[in-house]
Measured scan of single mutants.
Amino acid sequence: MAAGGDHGSPDSYRSPLASRYASPEMCFVFSDRYKFRTWRQLWLWLAEAEQTLGLPITDEQIQEMKSNLENIDFKMAAEEEKRLRHDVMAHVHTFGHCCPKAAGIIHLGATSCYVGDNTDLIILRNALDLLLPKLARVISRLADFAKERASLPTLGFTHFQPAQLTTVGKRCCLWIQDLCMDLQNLKRVRDDLRFRGVKGTTGTQASFLQLFEGDDHKVEQLDKMVTEKAGFKRAFIITGQTYTRKVDIEVLSVLASLGASVHKICTDIRLLANLKEMEEPFEKQQIGSSAMPYKRNPMRSERCCSLARHLMTLVMDPLQTASVQWFERTLDDSANRRICLAEAFLTADTILNTLQNISEGLVVYPKVIERRIRQELPFMATENIIMAMVKAGGSRQDCHEKIRVLSQQAASVVKQEGGDNDLIERIQVDAYFSPIHSQLDHLLDPSSFTGRASQQVQRFLEEEVYPLLKPYESVMKVKAELCL
């Protein structure tokens, strides 16, 4: 049975990233139509530049190519590739079939990587351009969430054990800070992308030097003109047959890092959902379990974690691919890159769409948070109580021993009897502590235990987050809708 299948058929496997999760716009960027249309555009740009620099290419040939950029006979191309065992030459023939007058000058002087690699770089750039505003929107939604809850005390956790208090907004800023680093890295790697350009079979530009009869300047002009037509500021000066596969490492490393950030955020949300302090959106008709109707599973956060793990592992592909590119190139890269580049971007696209949807509907339960604080705060307040007693004339050592005994009794009630923490009640009825009984409410005010959390939130948002989001103001209103 021949390899390949009808990918629109229910009898043929289709990647869930495309069929179930990723956005239509990201799927289109990695589609065959987008790819092969870009090949034709690159052939047109090459012909236009070659004509401008004096090669015998007519206006009629150029116009014929322009008129057929979208006229792609995919069936013919597939048949040609089956016959020739070469995808680029299959599309040269297919393009030439609908451009008979231009057929002889299509791909003039070029090698397969002229269309293959340059198209990949265009796709990487455009895919990054799709991700950047999506990530900015996630940051914006979380920034709104953090600002609104900047002063809401909550129990902090280290080692997932109760620690000092923080605020809900401050905790959210930990998430935002990681995503801001990801946004900066995505922008950097996007701006650092260079075009492969017009380089020939081993990167020496020998074929173009021959076409222009040894004119170095025209060869350099050709490279520059096509690079500018493709919208790049610069091209690699040095290439082998391909652009260095280190570029793929750079791009997928940034995406993998984004995956790590999203995994951490969504894990926190899942843990908070278990504590009943916070939940992701839950639709009115949504079913959490087929057997347990009360369940409210954090399905979206779980999906993000599941896909983020996949995204983090994909960076190993370009690392290994770059390491086995012998001399000017081997074909070890080809099949692998067809999979890992598309999957990385479709996965990143999915987790950003999902995280935006989550961040637009996060639900906080202040009463649950308050109750958990009441359970733990008495123990945390013991040092403040000791200091207040010393100020009232008591002995630190005597007070410490009193607190120690009462704390152990209260802990026994919590752990052995399943009761509430009654340390404060014990202190309130103990005559030894009568000098500070009137101060206990103040000493137990949760806001006095959150330090500068709310001020940190305000400063972080104003100095770091809002300036970073400013270039994306025009796209901030787009909502994230999930079908599944």
Rank of each mutant, 00 (worst) to 15 (best):
G5I: 13
G8C: 15
Y21L: 00
A22L: 09
F28H: 10
F30G: 02
F30P: 00
W43M: 06
L46N: 07
E48R: 03
P56A: 13
I57S: 02
Q63D: 15
E64L: 10
S67F: 11
N68F: 08
I72D: 09
I72L: 10
M76Q: 14
E79C: 14
E80R: 10
K82D: 15
D87S: 00
H107A: 00
A127F: 05
L130Q: 07
A136M: 15
V138C: 08
I139N: 11
R141P: 15
R141G: 14
K147D: 11
K147H: 13
P153C: 12
T154K: 01
L155N: 01
G156A: 12
F157T: 02
Q161D: 02
Q161R: 02
P162R: 03
V168Q: 02
V168D: 04
V168Y: 06
G169P: 02
R171D: 02
Q177W: 08
C180M: 13
C180H: 09
D182P: 07
D191G: 08
R194P: 12
G200C: 01
G203H: 00
S207K: 01
S207F: 05
E220P: 03
Q221D: 13
L222G: 04
E228V: 11
G231T: 02
G231I: 01
I237R: 09
G240Q: 05
Q241M: 01
L255D: 05
H263E: 03
T267R: 03
I269N: 00
L271A: 10
A273C: 14
K276Q: 06
G288D: 04
S289M: 04
S290L: 02
P293T: 02
Y294N: 06
M299Y: 09
R300H: 12
C304T: 11
L307A: 14
A308R: 02
L311E: 03
M312R: 05
M316I: 11
V324N: 12
W326Q: 07
F327M: 13
D333Q: 00
N336E: 02
R337I: 06
T350P: 05
T354L: 15
V368F: 06
P378V: 07
T382N: 06
M387I: 08
A388V: 04
M389R: 07
A392Y: 08
R404P: 04
L406N: 09
L406E: 06
S407V: 06
S407T: 06
E417Y: 09
I424P: 10
I427D: 01
Q428F: 13
I436M: 07
H437I: 11
S447M: 15
S448P: 10
T450L: 05
R452W: 06
P467E: 10
L468F: 07
L468V: 11
K470V: 10
P471Q: 15
P471K: 15
S474F: 14
L482F: 14
C483W: 05
